[in-house]
Amino acid sequence: MSRVVRAARGWVGTPYVHQAACKGAGCDCLGLIRGLWRELYGAEPEAPPAYTMDWSEPQGAEALWRAAARHLMAKPLSEAASGDVILFRMRDGSVAKHLGVQSAVGETEPGAAAVKPGPAFIHAYAGHGVVESPLSPPWQRRIVARFQFPKELI
């Protein structure tokens, strides 16, 4: 299991609190990634501006995508790995504004006799808090970008 996934699982059960990033007390999806960055590397690379629940939608700006690209390493969508940060577009035509950490890929490992459980991800979800969810086909269809934390820092 990757260091990122171990750290993310430590956040499971944290309540959903908009704009927060405090393990055990509250976070949103961006707050989860910010908190993981602090656990893995120390200080965050930048402070996010205040944002509303509909952030970037009126302008159609991909603010979250641009911020992820500034600090994380982009990778092809087809190269899923545990520990990846995945970015979702919740509705067709809307801006991408949900993040999670891939916790399982659900593939058969070489030489393994059994298939691992299906793909899963950890995310902070309004009304649920930080949970580990199956990365089901409806969620998979919403993925628009895949990143990894910078290796030189982990």
Rank of each mutant, 00 (worst) to 15 (best):
residue 104 A to N: 13
residue 100 G to K: 08
residue 40 L to Y: 02
residue 120 A to H: 07
residue 126 A to Q: 11
residue 118 G to D: 03
residue 4 V to F: 00
residue 126 A to L: 06
residue 26 G to K: 08
residue 91 R to H: 14
residue 85 V to D: 03
residue 53 M to F: 06
residue 26 G to Q: 08
residue 17 V to S: 03
residue 147 F to Q: 09
residue 41 Y to T: 12
residue 71 H to N: 10
residue 139 W to P: 00
residue 17 V to A: 13
residue 84 D to Q: 03
residue 75 K to Q: 14
residue 73 M to D: 13
residue 126 A to W: 01
residue 138 P to A: 02
residue 109 E to W: 08
residue 125 Y to E: 08
residue 138 P to L: 07
residue 144 V to Y: 03
residue 154 I to H: 01
residue 27 C to K: 03
residue 136 S to F: 01
residue 2 S to C: 07
residue 64 L to E: 09
residue 130 V to Y: 00
residue 62 E to R: 08
residue 1 M to V: 13
residue 152 E to Q: 13
residue 24 G to L: 07
residue 51 Y to G: 09
residue 47 A to E: 15
residue 55 W to D: 15
residue 43 A to D: 15
residue 138 P to G: 07
residue 100 G to H: 09
residue 77 L to Y: 04
residue 62 E to M: 07
residue 80 A to S: 14
residue 153 L to W: 03
residue 7 A to H: 01
residue 33 I to N: 04
residue 12 V to T: 13
residue 96 A to Q: 07
residue 21 A to F: 00
residue 14 T to D: 09
residue 114 A to F: 11
residue 15 P to Q: 03
residue 147 F to N: 09
residue 86 I to C: 14
residue 79 E to S: 12
residue 152 E to A: 13
residue 134 P to E: 12
residue 100 G to I: 09
residue 35 G to E: 11
residue 83 G to Q: 04
residue 17 V to I: 15
residue 75 K to I: 02
residue 58 P to V: 05
residue 67 A to H: 12
residue 51 Y to F: 14
residue 14 T to E: 07
residue 31 G to K: 04
residue 145 A to N: 07
residue 146 R to N: 07
residue 80 A to H: 02
residue 132 E to A: 14
residue 134 P to T: 11
residue 137 P to K: 02
residue 82 S to C: 15
residue 54 D to I: 10
residue 143 I to H: 01
residue 87 L to D: 02
residue 111 G to C: 10
residue 87 L to P: 04
residue 115 V to D: 06
residue 120 A to I: 05
residue 91 R to S: 14
residue 113 A to H: 00
residue 19 Q to T: 15
residue 78 S to Q: 14
residue 64 L to Q: 14
residue 110 P to Y: 00
residue 126 A to V: 08
residue 85 V to C: 12
residue 87 L to H: 05
residue 122 I to M: 04
residue 105 V to H: 01
residue 30 L to H: 05
residue 32 L to S: 09
residue 111 G to V: 06
residue 22 C to Q: 11
residue 119 P to L: 02
residue 91 R to C: 07
residue 131 V to A: 08
residue 34 R to V: 12
residue 102 Q to E: 11
residue 36 L to F: 09
residue 66 R to S: 15
residue 118 G to K: 05
residue 69 A to M: 08
residue 9 R to I: 05
residue 38 R to F: 00
residue 1 M to L: 12
residue 66 R to W: 13
residue 14 T to G: 10
residue 53 M to Q: 10
residue 31 G to C: 09
residue 23 K to T: 05
residue 18 H to Y: 08
residue 150 P to Q: 01
residue 140 Q to Y: 02
residue 109 E to K: 14
residue 148 Q to R: 14
residue 51 Y to C: 07
residue 153 L to F: 06
residue 125 Y to C: 10
residue 115 V to F: 00
residue 144 V to W: 01
residue 111 G to D: 10
residue 64 L to R: 02
residue 46 E to M: 10
residue 128 H to D: 02
residue 28 D to S: 09
residue 141 R to A: 15
residue 126 A to R: 11
residue 37 W to F: 00
residue 71 H to D: 03
residue 100 G to L: 12
residue 39 E to R: 11
residue 60 G to D: 12
residue 83 G to I: 05
residue 7 A to T: 13
residue 142 R to P: 03
residue 80 A to K: 03
residue 91 R to P: 02
residue 87 L to G: 10
residue 70 R to C: 14
residue 26 G to A: 11
residue 97 K to A: 15
residue 65 W to F: 12
residue 123 H to K: 03
residue 106 G to C: 06
residue 99 L to N: 09
residue 46 E to Y: 01
residue 60 G to P: 06
residue 34 R to C: 14
residue 52 T to Q: 10
